[in-house]
Design a protein around this nucleic acid. Structure first.
Length: 121
DNA sequence: GTTCTGACTAGGA
DNA sequence: CTCCTAGCCAGAA
C-alpha cells in the first residue's frame, strides 16, 4: 500500500537531467513511419548501455516537453510496445498513433523491425 | 557514500 | 512462439 517511491519518482517540479535532453534530441530525429528501440536511442544519445534510461526519460519527462516529440516511435528491441501498469493505458494510445503513421503490427502485436526499424540516419 | 528501481536487453529453457 | 533470468545504467532517496 504505502510503498515509498524509490528510483525515479513522478514529481511536479521536474528537473530534466542532461542525459534526458540527449535522448529527446535523438527521438526527434526518428522519421515518421519508422520506429527505434530504447537501446538504439540510448546508443545514439551517447549512452550505449542505458536503454532503461531512454524509457525512463520518455515516461517521467515533463509532458509539455515529451508531447512535442514523437515518443510513440520508441519501442522495445523485440518490436513490441512495452507494457507497464503505471502507463495506465498509454500503451494502447501508442499503438494507435503508430498505426496512424502506417506502421503495421502482426497478429501477435509485433512490429517488424526489418521493415519499420529506423537506420539511425 | 549506499540501496533500490525501472516505457530495457540478450540469452537460455 | 512464450516465459524467466542475470546484467545493465543513471537517477532518486
Amino acid at each position: 500500500m504505502n510503498r515509498r517511491p524509490r528510483g525515479i519518482a513522478p514529481r511536479i517540479d521536474i528537473v530534466v537531467p542532461d542525459s534526458w535532453h540527449a535522448i529527446y534530441a535523438v527521438v526527434k530525429r526518428i522519421p515518421k513511419g519508422k520506429v527505434a528501440s530504447y537501446g538504439q536511442v540510448a546508443m545514439l544519445a551517447g549512452l550505449p548501455r542505458a536503454a532503461r534510461l531512454a524509457g525512463t526519460a520518455l515516461f517521467h519527462g515533463p509532458p509539455e516537453l515529451v508531447s512535442k516529440i514523437p515518443w510513440q516511435r520508441v519501442v522495445n528491441a523485440a518490436g513490441r510496445i512495452s507494457y507497464s501498469e503505471a502507463r495506465n493505458g498509454s500503451d494502447h494510445r501508442q499503438r494507435e498513433l503508430l498505426e496512424k503513421e502506417g506502421i503495421e503490427f502482426t497478429a501477435a502485436g509485433v512490429i517488424r523491425m526489418s521493415k519499420y526499424g529506423w537506420d539511425g540516419k
